[in-house]
Amino acid sequence: MTIIKRLERILIQLAIVHFILLILSQVFLEIPSFKMYTNKSIYYEGVINGEREPALETIDR
């Protein structure tokens, strides 16, 4: 086999592995219990703890 054919075979195998990992990650992100631990935006928005922080007032009244 020439070097080019080996390189093509390796690239095709990497593309197939990448596609499989992409599909698996999308499947895992559809599971709600798994999504809760991987999506960090719910921590920033304060959805998990359920506590309300006092709103900041910018104008004194």
Rank of each mutant, 00 (worst) to 15 (best):
M1N: 15
N49R: 03
K40F: 06
I31A: 01
K40C: 05
L14N: 14
Q26R: 08
L56K: 09
H18P: 10
E8D: 13
T38L: 09
V47C: 06
E57P: 00
I4L: 15
T58M: 07
S25H: 10
I10S: 03
R52C: 02
Y44R: 10
I4P: 08
P54T: 03
P54E: 08
F34W: 03
Y37N: 05
F19H: 07
Q13I: 10
S33K: 03
E51Y: 08
E8I: 13
E57Y: 01
I23L: 05
R9A: 10
N49T: 05
I4T: 15
K40Q: 08
V27W: 01
R52G: 04
L56M: 06
L24I: 09
I42V: 01
M1F: 15
S41Q: 09
T38E: 01
N39C: 05
E57C: 00
F28Y: 08
F19W: 06
G46F: 02
S33R: 02
F28D: 02
I16L: 12
L56T: 06
L21A: 02
G50W: 01
V27D: 02
E8V: 15
R6C: 15
E51R: 09
Q26K: 04
E45V: 02
R9W: 08
L11W: 09
E8L: 14
L21N: 05
